[in-house]
Amino acid sequence: MRKMKSLLIAAAMFFGVSSTAVMAQSKVAHIDVQALMSELPAMKSADAELKKMGEGFEANFKSLITEYQTKVQKYQAEAATAGEIENEKRAKEVGEMEQKIQEFQNSASQQLEQKRMQLLQPIMEKAQAAIKKVAKAKGFDYVMDATVGGGLLVADGPSLLDDVKKELGVK
């Protein structure tokens, strides 16, 4: 049993030293992808287009809500004198409007997300290609994303942000 324990400890030490040696031979850099993306002119243009599209959806949504609230207030004010059949008809109409509003919200959200992905994909691909090109030119084996909350705990090594911005023509 002691031999087994000794073998396991020796193996753990061997693999620990081996992986450290491999890591020491690899060159690692980092880049804050979020900072890079926020400075790209194409990203600013995409954000403006998404904002405009969102504002259009918001205006339509407000119009639907105003129409809904107006009908609800009218129907509540007239409920006592309208009669049971008319009130049931109106209740059904209000329910249909609520459903229409919910469907509009879902559709608008999906359309915005699709447009966002459509606009961002080529920008991300261009940025990734530039990061790869700069990393290769500088001899780095690995590039970590240093975006806050991205999982990189220490970023004291070389940053490629300025070089990639230069590659993409961003000042």
Rank of each mutant, 00 (worst) to 15 (best):
Q110M: 13
K92V: 11
K132G: 05
Q121I: 01
L112Q: 14
V134M: 03
N87E: 01
Q121A: 12
I85A: 15
A129M: 04
E125S: 14
E98H: 10
Q118V: 10
M124D: 08
M97A: 11
V148A: 15
A137S: 10
L112M: 15
G139H: 03
Q114H: 07
Q128W: 06
K92D: 14
S109Q: 15
A79N: 10
K89F: 06
G151P: 09
D145H: 09
G150S: 11
E125Q: 15
L152G: 08
T147H: 08
V148T: 12
L112W: 05
Q114Y: 08
K100N: 11
A135S: 10
E125P: 01
E84C: 00
M144F: 14
Q118R: 08
I101G: 08
Q114E: 12
Y142R: 07
Y142M: 10
I85T: 13
K115A: 10
V94S: 09
R116L: 03
V143R: 03
L153Q: 14
R116T: 09
K133T: 07
G95V: 01
S107V: 00
A129L: 05
I85V: 14
E103S: 11
A135Y: 04
K132L: 07
E93T: 11
V134Q: 02
K92A: 14
L120H: 02
M97G: 07
Q121S: 12
E96R: 06
S109R: 13
A129S: 13
D145A: 07
Q110D: 13
A91N: 12
V148Q: 14
E103V: 00
V143L: 02
Q102F: 06
R116F: 09
T81S: 15
M117D: 14
I85C: 00
A108P: 08
Q102E: 11
A130F: 05
N106V: 06
Q114M: 10
T147W: 06
K100L: 06
G150K: 03
A129N: 10
A82Y: 05
